[in-house]
Every structure is written in structure tokens, then in C-alpha cells.
């Protein structure tokens, strides 16, 4: 469903991604781990369509389409969802209005009739349960004055509303306490189906105890240097990233 080939990305002339290759099929959960500054968030941003990054080489194919040629909003309408590490606060924009507008435009893109007010409210009620979102939160402006945990929960709520085919969750576990982590992870698990795929970007194995990945990749110095099953995450947690660095520099990894 998603195929990234030899992806090179730079920002202001500085190379960040140096040849990423990654292939994900429907029904799979992939975890991307790696030390700070290895390019994990850049990868998420490029998939989202952030224009401050330059793709200098390589391509991303999503559902047989050239993802990089799609506008930011068309990527979303084609089913790509990014859960941001730092969700933006949008004062004055009510979450319901925001989601209604988003859904209307996605449905219009797909040639579907917009949901009626009552259909939309019913859907909201149903999806709020996924992340145990309180009425208090959903009546507020998008992320305004939210705690770190509330913001992340709101990201997963939006994911539930938009029902993406590919979700990229960028450090969704950062800034969460244990209860919030459990709620967010359980939300993601409820949204996992045979038809969609999820990329989880994280520093810690802890999240992967809840969201069990099929494949774990290690991103280092702009490349995926190692891939394995979920035991790789456990190994990283135990040993840290230093051994990756040593092996990479000695040429054992490429």
C-alpha cells in the first residue's frame, strides 16, 4: 500500500533522509524507532506534505499513486493521516466545526453526500468513546489550552473520525502519563483493521507493549539501518542505540 524508495530529503541544503526504503501492506503495523535527530519526524512530515522539506531523490508510492505529487489535503482525502508530535493549537476553531468541515470535504472528494447534522453528531458520539474523550473537550477550540495528553487523545479522536487507510503516528506516546498512554494505545488498537496500515514512530518500547508491531525499523543517520520483529524493540530498550551506532559505523549495517 505504501512504498518508499530511496527517499532523500533535505532542509535548507542539509541532508536529513539519505535513502529510505520502506514497504507497508494493509493490515500491518510498523514501528520506526531511532535516536533523536535520526530523521523520524522528517519522514512523517514528508508523508504529510510539509513544503519546507525538499525531496531531492526517490519516490513514495501510495495506493499506486505518486504521493509526493498530491496536495496536502488530497493526501488526507486519499486516506493518509498524521498524528502529530506537537499538535497545533487553533484558538476559536471548534473541534466539531473543524471535523465537520474536514469530513464534508473528504466525502465530497470521494463523491459522497455530506453527512447530515444528526448523522455527524452520532458519529462524533461514537468516536469519542474510542479515546474516552469527554464532552468538555469536544466543545472546545482545537487543542487550545489542552494538556499534552489531551492533545494526543484529540489526535487519535480525529483519526477515529477520519478513518484513514494509512496512519502515521509521530511520537504519540511522548508527554503521556501511564493512564493516557493506555487510553491512546487502546484507541489505536480499536482503529486497527485488516484494511488499514499504521506506522508508529516512537522512542520507547513501552508503547509497543500496547500496540504490537509486525515490523520494527531502526532509523539512524537518515537511513533504515536495521529491521526486525517486535523483539528488536525489546533489544533496543535493553541495550540503547549505541550498539546500532557502533555497528553502523563499522559498516556492519548499511
Amino acid at each position: 500500500m505504501l512504498k518508499i524508495e530511496d527517499l532523500h530529503v533535505s532542509i535548507k541544503g542539509k541532508q536529513i533522509l539519505k535513502g529510505i526504503n520502506l514497504q507497508i501492506s494493509r493490515g500491518e503495523v510498523h514501528a520506526i524507532m531511532g535516536p533523536n535527530g535520526s530523521g523520524k519526524s522528517t519522514l512523517a512530515s514528508v508523508i504529510a506534505g510539509r513544503d519546507i522539506f525538499d525531496v531531492t531523490q526517490g519516490k513514495i508510492t501510495y495506493k499506486e499513486k505518486n504521493l509526493l505529487a498530491l496536495s496536502v489535503e488530497d493526501r488526507a482525502r486519499e486516506g493518509v493521516f498524521i498524528g502529530f508530535q506537537y499538535p497545533v493549537e487553533i484558538p476559536g476553531v471548534n473541534i466539531s466545526n473543524f471535523m465537520k468541515t474536514a469530513l464534508d470535504e473528504i466525502r465530497q472528494y470521494k463523491g459522497l453526500e455530506p453527512l447530515t447534522g444528526s448523522q455527524f453528531l452520532k458519529l462524533m458520539e461514537e468516536k469519542k468513546k474510542v479515546v474516552e474523550l469527554t464532552a468538555k473537550l469536544s466543545n472546545r477550540s482545537v487543542n487550545e489550552g489542552f494538556s499534552g495528553g489531551e492533545k494526543k487523545r484529540n489526535e487519535i479522536f480525529q483519526m477515529a473520525m477520519l478513518e484513514p487507510e494509512l496512519a502515521v503516528l509521530d511520537e504519540t506516546d511522548s508527554g503521556l502519563d501511564i493512564d493516557a498512554l493506555r487510553i491512546v494505545a487502546s484507541g489505536v488498537n480499536q482503529l486497527k483493521t485488516k484494511e488499514n496500515a499504521i506506522i508508529v514512530i516512537t522512542h520507547y518500547q513501552r508503547l509497543l507493549d500496547y500496540i504490537v508491531p509486525d515490523v520494527v525499523h531502526v532509523l539512524f543517520d537518515g537511513k533504515i539501518v536495521k529491521s526486525g520483529d517486535k523483539t528488536l524493540a525489546v533489544e533496543l530498550e535493553k541495550k540503547g542505540y549505541d550498539w546500532i551506532k557502533t555497528e553502523y559505523e563499522s559498516g556492519k549495517l548499511n
Partner: peptide, 22 residues
């Protein structure tokens, strides 16, 4: 904020409209 809204499927015009309206 505009970018964030577009990643949820809103076109630029709608995103700007929502921000200005808010």
C-alpha cells in the same frame, strides 16, 4: 494552523475561512 488543518482534508480556502471566522 493552516497546514495542520489541511492534513485533515480541508482545502486551503476552507482552512483560511475557518481561521478568519474564528
Amino acid at each position: 494552523a493552516l497546514f495542520y488543518m489541511r492534513t485533515r482534508g480541508l482545502c486551503e480556502r476552507s482552512a483560511k475561512m475557518l481561521l478568519m471566522y474564528a
